[in-house]
Amino acid sequence: MHGISFDIAHMLAGFLVLLSFLMLYQVRLLPLLHVLAAHAFVLALSVAWQAYIQHAPHLYITAAIALVFKAIIVPVALRRMVFRMGIHREIETVVSIGLTMLAGMALVALSLEVMLPLTAKAEPVVREDIALALSVVLIGLLMMVTRRNAVSQVVGFMSLENGINLAATGAQGMPLVVEISVAFSVLIAFIVIGIFLFRIRERFDTVDIGVLDEFRGGQR
């Protein structure tokens, strides 16, 4: 089983990292949502592959959850939100794409540097998967830090969660209940954030976080 199954698992995880970089690069909202959907789709594939090579049928359920919720429902809902708010043509001013990409590379290097020695005793499949999953998490966090638009922060959060899921499924023996509860918490977080987005826009006519901070200015 070591040969090809191994490589496919790594290829899928690496693809996930690549899509994370694509998210960092993408400054327009709608294409960003497309990348998010692709990200979740690759995650679902990766989880399904893990289910196959670990002979763990419950992981197929996780894969299905990822596919239905993360790859379809959440991006579609976000897309509708973006249209209803009329911000589908907006282009975000990010810190600087080049700089962000460099930082993302540094993060991938860091997570490899941290994880590979730490997991020296673990199985090779798990080792690299976890290292790549950590880089996905870190890039998601980086995206949340560098973006100003609340929608793209939600996207960053979703990709971060995908990284956690990747790590969780890579480790053998993770009970299904953990994954289901993670999926549900993310769903609830998504609903809450969505409601807040609308409430914020009603009040302030924008979902730009920088503008929100100005409203709070008096207390600084």
């Binding site: 860091l110 870190l138 966090l141 949340m144 830090v145 560098t146 100003r148």
Partner: peptide
């Protein structure tokens, strides 16, 4: 600001990993 809070979490995490 919210982004600064996130940045704090992010930097703390990176520092610990380093």
């Amino acid at each position: 600001t919210i982004r600064r809070y996130l940045a704090f979490v992010f930097v703390a995490l990176i520092m610990l990993l380093l």
